[in-house]
Amino acid sequence: MATINLDQLTKSYGPDEVLHHISGDINDSEFVVIVGPSGCGKSTLLRMIAGLETVTSGEISIGGKIVNEIEPADRDIAMVFQNYALYPHMSVRENMAYGLKIRKTPKDEITRRVNEAADILEIREYLDRKPRQLSGGQRQRVAMGRAIVRDPQVFLFDEPLSNLDAKLRVQMRLEIRKLQKRLGVTSIYVTHDQVEAMTLGDRLMVLNAGYVEQFDTPIELYERPASMFVAGFIGSPAMNFLTATGGDGLVILDNGTALPTRLSTSGPVIAGIRPEHLIAEPEGVLPVRVEMLEQLGANTLVHGVLDGSDIPIVASVTGIQSLPVNDVVRFTPGPDALHLFDANTERRLS
């Protein structure tokens, strides 16, 4: 098992720097998810750890050893690709055994390990099929199996579930999580799906345009997002942002409403409130003109604007609610629901 340390990692393609001074330490047996919008550099970072991309500057260590110049095959890692990258002309068994065969592992040892992995993933009956004779979910398992038989120090996953349908995705997500806990292998998992990230990761590294916005536990990201980007990215529906002016123990929204806070601030600030933390109350301080309702069964999303302005507000209320469109409903933020951000730097004011 191994720790992974990233130290001031930078990646440039020609003159374009796509990753900027990424640092972070990943503990032994930890499951870290790298999450961010498309094009933010997640895959590039993962591929640098795998050794498939060169490092422009900085250092990567696996198990305390600097691996910058070490070939992927010698880094003791296994990788699961988005499109699985199974060898189409080899059977499932051969696919799983290929890496071991190259390493000149004895035949009976290979058989034992392949069978063991096949049992764990319940793909034993497919061992003699070709990848094209398998469903997407089964291929996914084979790709995992190929990683497991290698018994590596580190698992790397690049959006392994994005080709599966929603239901299978949820199921495989749980399985990956269980498997990782059972094997205790340090894992890095790349996804752009924040739900997947929140459910899988011990810690999440949120990337935005090649910068690490925050690297912390899912709960911490949710409760204390370090920037407006993280606040907007984590949680669904996304956090509401309202421009406001800071004051002593309160902030004053643009429509004149004063909201209490434990912080003393001054000048322009951004107030963030999660939709699920808005409580409908007759005496509520935020009048919202309802524009549309989304009935999700367990809860109802109220889309509207702050009355007398065109600032969009989303609130999530429990149960099935039917509110007439164009009516004004009043909401109050729950206790501690207010997040304040600097209007210029967009960083959290704590």
Binding site: R47, L52, P72, M79, F81, Y87, Y98, G99
Partner: peptide, 26 residues
């Protein structure tokens, strides 16, 4: 796909091995 090469690299296949075991059959 490039992933085929990358996968083979992680599996430890040398370039000629990749050529024989993967490119030729494909």
């Amino acid at each position: 796909p490039d992933e085929m090469l990358e996968s083979a690299r992680i599996d430890g296949a040398s370039p000629m091995r990749f050529f024989w075991d993967i490119l030729i059959p494909l």
